[in-house]
Design a protein around this nucleic acid. Structure first.
Lengths: 329, 329
DNA sequence: ACCCAGGCAGACAACGTTGTCCACCTTCGG
DNA sequence: CCGAAGGTGGACAACGTTGTCTGCCTGGGT
């Protein structure tokens, strides 16, 4: 910028004025400065600008795994809103590792992002308290924060799971397996709660042999499903509590006959094209992302009302996998 | 930082030394400084630090659409490598809009990212020349840059398409439709080239009625497929040139009987579970992302060899959709 | 012709950090 | 006991930009 000023034979501040399109510069002078800018290939250094002005026009998005369809849909929602606000987006994946989550969140804060949207992996977010105190906004997404009063945008996990399981019960299933996340993951425990609620409402027992909460890799899921389908009282239906579990179960069950009925939480890209069709409890991850980002920018805009918890409804999409199985009832 | 120095009763530079774990500070003093840091909840401002040191430890990733499974897999690959290098990741989606791509790229550069990984949407990347000249590294991903000598990491689009179409020909198909991207998109035209090559090798004509290159939304794809399946010489097989087209075609064809044979470029999450199974030409998007990011960090590390074009192989995954259809041959 | 007002340009400090340089104090050897 | 060397802490400038303030110059009004 100094070079530009020298080249154009003007003062530093005049160049700044031209770059920022401030009034108070004669057209002739502005043209001369612009010519110098083009000649030198000058670009304003936004880092310095933002250091001076105190804002960064950027937010951090902390996901579980950017490669997962659910995360990437969240991401799309957040990005759209960030764009509307002229904000750039830092993205990072925690891979469900609390330590990694913390490192990334603090790295974002050290860059002085204006705000954070966090899909929490860890169990304690107290480490963010100093950051929030110093003015960084934060909204938690998909799961609430623990140990910190903060905004959260969630799906109706328990309600959705309950509806999905009730759908299976309505079709005559009495022995329904649940395969889901580790219990310390909020969405996993909420969906399990919904599962139990649906069984309780129907007066059915919740046999612990039919409940698997563990890692969601394909192997673990396959073992869990195999276990539930064998023995003296095999399940006739499965409720799979997230997209990875559903996928793992479908892969294991491919070609199995008779295939147990299956209802999954989260829709899959090709869900409608499978035969039999895949009934799911669908979330709208893009809307989740948008809602969280809007809330964040509201906070950045000065909204100081108490922390909110926004719960978005789920939607049961019935695709005909609820047939009464042979031997049920 | 000033406050910390005052609170600890030491000089500014001493605090800096403690924060950066430099030698030359007595343990007692360091402890006193650390106590003050904790008491005040101080965090180093990396923006200022990076302004002073001249690096930013961040790279920009410019995608077509972060919500697309292909893009998000690229993203995962890039993120992993960035993490290894201690770099943070700016992400943005161009939505195939050249203007938007340019805005984002320049915004990243104004933030002085160390480098860019770009999935190009535009036709001319000359606007990046000044940035590259001033030291920003750039690697193009999935499609090459135009009007700029720069590194590119691509899939073997033509070869993969050729293999996929040859597979259909080997199974007796003579009238094979091609549904793909607009011709100005590099991957689209390369895959079309591969399609034509396979036909030519087999001595088959390439009827323009069987070639559709247009937007890839479900409606357009459905219309194209319908057109190819009607008339006096309907196609007996389809080659769908990317994941969105494949999805659109599958949705349109759901329940159609007899379903034409289908080979798609890009694997789908549930591809193996469809019946009939979906044969695809699979790319490895995560490896594409990793390769591009590695190349970028090589450049940042001082590699000044001439621009490279790295082409990753594709892999034909046969899942039994190549049956000889009635009336073919 | 003179004065005042207003528009426009430039000097200067500051954002928060790090690199350079210097000064002090301690300690050890002669 | 003195001198020198080494180790430790602090003052200052600079990174590239913007906000504030001052001052010049021009034009119009009396």
């Amino acid at each position: 910028m100094k070079d530009v000023a020298a080249a154009a034979g003007v003062g530093l501040k005049t160049v700044s004025r031209v770059v920022n399109e401030e009034s108070g510069v004669s057209p002739a002078m502005a043209a001369r400065v612009r010519a110098a800018i083009d000649a030198l290939g000058f670009r304003r250094n936004d880092s310095a600008r933002l250091l001076r002005t105190g804002t960064t026009a950027s937010i951090g998005l902390l996901l579980e795994d950017i490669g997962d369809p659910f995360s990437s849909a969240l991401s799309r929602g957040v990005e759209g809103v960030a764009r509307e606000h002229g904000s750039l987006l830092f993205t990072g994946s925690s891979a469900e590792d609390p330590q990694r989550e913390r490192e990334l969140a603090l790295a974002f804060c050290a860059r002085r992002v204006d705000g954070l949207v966090v899909v929490p992996a860890g169990a304690d977010h107290g480490y963010l308290a100093p950051e929030l105190a110093s003015g960084t906004a934060a909204v938690f997404l998909d799961r609430p924060a623990s140990g910190l009063p903060a905004d959260a945008v969630l799906s109706d996990n328990a309600g959705g799971a309950r509806e999905g399981v009730a759908h299976l019960i309505a079709h005559g299933h009495r022995r329904i397996g649940f395969v889901g996340d580790l219990p310390h993951i909020h969405t996993g425990s909420e969906r399990l709660r919904g599962y139990r609620a649906a069984l309780a409402e129907a007066g059915l027992p919740a046999d612990e042999r039919w409940i698997a909460t563990g890692p969601t890799d394909a192997g673990t899921v396959a073992r869990a499903v195999r276990g539930m389908l064998s023995g003296s009282e095999p399940v006739t239906a499965l409720f799979t509590a997230n997209n990875r579990v559903t996928l793992g179960a479908l892969q294991y069950l491919a070609g199995a006959s008779p295939r147990p009925a299956l209802v999954g939480f989260d829709d899959l890209e090709l869900g409608a094209l499978l035969s039999p069709g895949l009934t799911v409890v669908a979330q709208d991850p893009e809307a989740l992302g948008r809602t969280a980002a809007r809330l964040l920018f509201d906070r950045l805009g000065g909204d100081t009302s108490p922390p909110q918890r926004i719960e978005l409804p789920t939607r049961l999409i019935v695709r005909g996998s609820g047939e009464v199985p042979p031997g049920a009832a």
